[in-house]
Design a protein around this nucleic acid. Structure first.
Lengths: 179, 179
DNA sequence: CTTACCATGTAAGGCGTTACATGATTCA
DNA sequence: TGAATCATGTAACGCCTTACATGGTAAG
């Protein structure tokens, strides 16, 4: 049973940029990585404690007037661990779409039901695509200011390409459903 | 804690087509649903037993000369359960690509490392795309013979569109990495 | 005669979400 | 003053994979 859990490197990756609190990490994941990764407080906070025990990050109390706040900073050992993982081959890229599951079994449902699922899917994809284009627009002007921006942009471009493909598929699928 | 587990409906969906054994179900998932869904024996066999206890499937011993074999057949109650789920809104479509995670943190690695990951990713996608095109070619001529084929084809088309987009992205990403 | 595949199943354990618990601050 | 948000954390529990256990058959 090798180390399959990715939460540690996700945290180290985010902390490699700058010291951050658990709460902010969660926000970053939800707003910037959400297209291809997710995490909950229930996994973030315990993992941060673990990383500290292992000496991969250090914690610092930065509470301001009663508002509890803990900033975590990556250590040299943590950065080494991150770099190490970065060189390892990719283990798993996974796409798990309940929408496709329902469509695959579509013969058991009314075509109108399937159409509804496709339309709901399309709506969601269009909304997400719009957000990504905005994220892209905000990164484009600053892409040369920090090396990291260039890479963030690459993942955003991936999302845009993929979502555009999803929408094209929706249009074809709707046409096919209506013969 | 609502019923989040999807394995039951996956099994019911596959059994809705025809009676099948656990082993064959696993094969079907690995060969036809693998692009958007997965399951292991460790989840399939216990779930099958559970479905039988709940009266959603029936089991029948079809062993042939010492080779143990159990075929499961969906019941009316099972079919009803499947139809019910099919009308429910989609709960989650999730894409979780470790490749994108490594690229997102790419600023911490050498560009050559990232390039390697992209090339490995591209290679895998091209291989999978080729498989899907073959699956498509085998379904195309029989698509009107069974209603289910039409739906299988739709999910394959989804994979093709998506993988084509991935490859286009790979080409752009490689260009960007080399300035 | 051994390798690959057919075939069913269990046990252990990891991973991660959900729900809960707590309390401060900001803003309408 | 009440709702939303900031902020940290724990406990329970569900789900699934991995590894193990077992044994038969087909093909070279």
């Amino acid at each position: 049973m090798a180390n399959k859990r990715k939460i540690d490197v996700v945290l180290l990756g985010i902390l490699s940029h700058e010291p951050t609190t658990g709460y902010e990490i969660k926000q970053q994941i939800d707003s910037k990585l959400n297209y291809f990764w997710g995490a909950s407080y229930g996994s973030i906070y315990p993992a941060l404690s673990q990383l500290e025990r292992d000496g991969l990050v250090t914690k610092e109390d930065i509470s301001t007037n009663g508002r509890e706040k803990i900033a975590y900073t990556i250590t040299d050992a943590g950065r080494r661990r991150l770099h190490e993982w970065l060189t390892l081959p990719i283990e798993k890229d996974e796409l798990r779409y309940e929408t496709l599951l329902k469509i695959y079994f579509g013969a058991e449902a009314e075509p109108e039901e399937i159409l509804r699922h496709i339309e709901a899917f399309e709506k969601k994809v269009r909304r997400d695509l719009e957000n990504m284009r905005q994220f892209e627009a905000s990164l484009e002007p600053v892409r040369h200011m920090e090396k990291a921006h260039e890479y963030y942009l690459m993942t955003v471009r991936f999302g845009i390409y993929t979502y555009e493909a999803h929408i094209k598929w929706c249009e074809e699928a709707k046409r096919r459903l209506c013969h």
